[in-house]
């Protein structure tokens, strides 16, 4: 969290001054989705269903943005070819 600002530095009307992309929800995760690109058929269902906009399609392949992925496992569950598996977070 950035340093707390005083009221003289805040916009009036209580409008938020930063986008939530600053707030990394990735540290909520217990298990992480890992994509097996050999199995992936690029159906985009994981991209469509991800509640956290954490699946990235870069035009060629699917990747997971671990900054935001909360590890819900929905992508792995919905993957029709089981190309995504939920694996323990790597320890240090």
């Amino acid at each position: 969290m950035a340093e707390l600002r005083g009221y003289k530095e805040l916009p009036i009307g209580a409008v938020p001054f930063r986008l939530s992309t600053d707030y990394k929800t990735g540290d909520w995760r217990a298990l992480r989705p890992v994509v097996d690109h050999n199995k992936c058929v690029k159906c985009m269902l994981c991209w469509i269903y991800c509640p956290d906009m954490a699946v990235i399609w870069d035009g060629e392949k699917i990747t997971i943005n671990y900054d935001y992925c909360k590890g819900c496992g929905l992508c792995a569950h919905e993957c029709p070819v089981k190309a995504i598996t939920m694996e323990p977070e790597p320890t240090e």
């Binding site: 009307g13 209580a14 409008v15 001054f17």
Partner: peptide
């Protein structure tokens, strides 16, 4: 309209619901 400064726009933006410069009114605070 009054102008406010938020970090995600370079310039000050009008304090209204504006599709050209989106702001969020009434957050959790």
């Amino acid at each position: 309209y009054p102008k406010v400064k938020v970090d995600y726009f370079d310039e000050e933006v009008p304090l209204i619901l504006n599709p050209a410069r989106p702001l969020s009114f009434g957050p959790l605070d």
